[in-house]
């Protein structure tokens, strides 16, 4: 009993120490507070932004870009992965092209995207789409290809064909790998968004940080970074929750982490 309590507390020890040291060093004011704010002042400005409602506007804007981009890119990647996983013809036709595009660092396209799509929402969402598409494509494809052929043969023997075979054998077999892709894509999604939100804009966490930089509000810059981190963690937790639900048959997923 005590052991589990201790184990739960263990991961928090280092972050707490960091916070305390940070607070103490900031309170000593070795560096001016405007360059090195204390955690408390970050908290205070966070609270002020929450009360004024600004925080929600910005977080909401970033979240909607993330979700829309993730949905579009995820669906395209998933569809391509399924198609190429199931059909050799489709694979031969498109995989080389997809791999070529995948090898371009999508963030390097930023200037081109701005020229082509302007600086509005579509440019940012496009970058997110491009970023999340490939991890999901690759993992869906490999998931489908690596389904145990013995199970597929068994399914055929029991008269499963087409959609039924896909639903009963191929998709569930590929699901663990697809979830790996989703979780990886979530990381790419936030990273892309951070960069994409440096494109001039009027809303979003990126705007919050860029704007704060102009006024030397270091506390708000730090707050933005922390919000990105929290959202990233939250997204991962949601994905993990979905994964645990969908893969509860898999003994290795039943273990509490």
């Amino acid at each position: 009993m005590r052991k589990t309590w201790f184990n739960r507390f263990l991961p928090w020890i280092i972050p707490i120490i960091i916070l305390v040291v940070w607070q103490v060093v900031a309170a000593l004011e070795i560096v001016t507070p405007s360059l090195f704010p204390s955690p408390l002042s970050v908290l205070v400005s966070g609270w002020q932004l929450t009360v004024s409602g600004e925080l929600f506007t910005h977080v909401g804007a970033s979240l909607s870009r993330a979700v829309i981009g993730m949905l579009i890119g995820g669906l395209i990647g998933f569809a391509l992965g399924i198609m190429n996983g199931l059909s050799d013809t489709s694979y031969r036709l498109s995989d080389t092209t997809i791999q070529m595009i995948r090898n371009i660092p999508h963030l390097a396209l930023l200037p081109l995207v701005i020229v082509w799509l302007g600086i509005d929402e579509s440019a940012k969402i496009f970058l997110v789409v491009l970023g999340v598409l490939f991890p999901i494509y690759v993992n869906t494809f490999h998931g489908i290809r690596n389904v145990d052929p013995g199970l597929v043969e068994m399914g055929r023997m029991y008269k499963l064909k087409g959609w039924k075979l896909f639903k009963a054998v191929l998709l569930p077999g590929a699901l663990p790998s697809i979830f790996v892709g989703v979780r990886y894509a979530l990381g790419v999604m936030w990273l892309t968004l951070i960069v994409a939100e440096t494109i001039p804009t009027e809303q979003g966490i990126g705007y919050l940080a860029t704007n704060a930089r102009e006024f030397m509000q270091t506390d708000i810059i730090i707050l933005s970074i922390i919000i990105y981190a929290l959202l990233g963690k939250l997204a991962d937790l949601i994905a993990q929750f979905g994964e645990n639900r969908a893969l509860k048959w898999n003994a290795s997923y039943n273990k509490e982490l």
Binding site: G150, L151, K159, K164, L175, W249
Partner: peptide, 20 residues
């Protein structure tokens, strides 16, 4: 029947039996 059972790990026992 094969050497390995080839049960679908993501289906409950009864659903494995009713496969197809």
């Amino acid at each position: 029947m094969y050497q390995d059972s080839r049960l679908l790990p993501w289906k409950k026992i009864i659903d494995n039996v009713g496969l197809g």
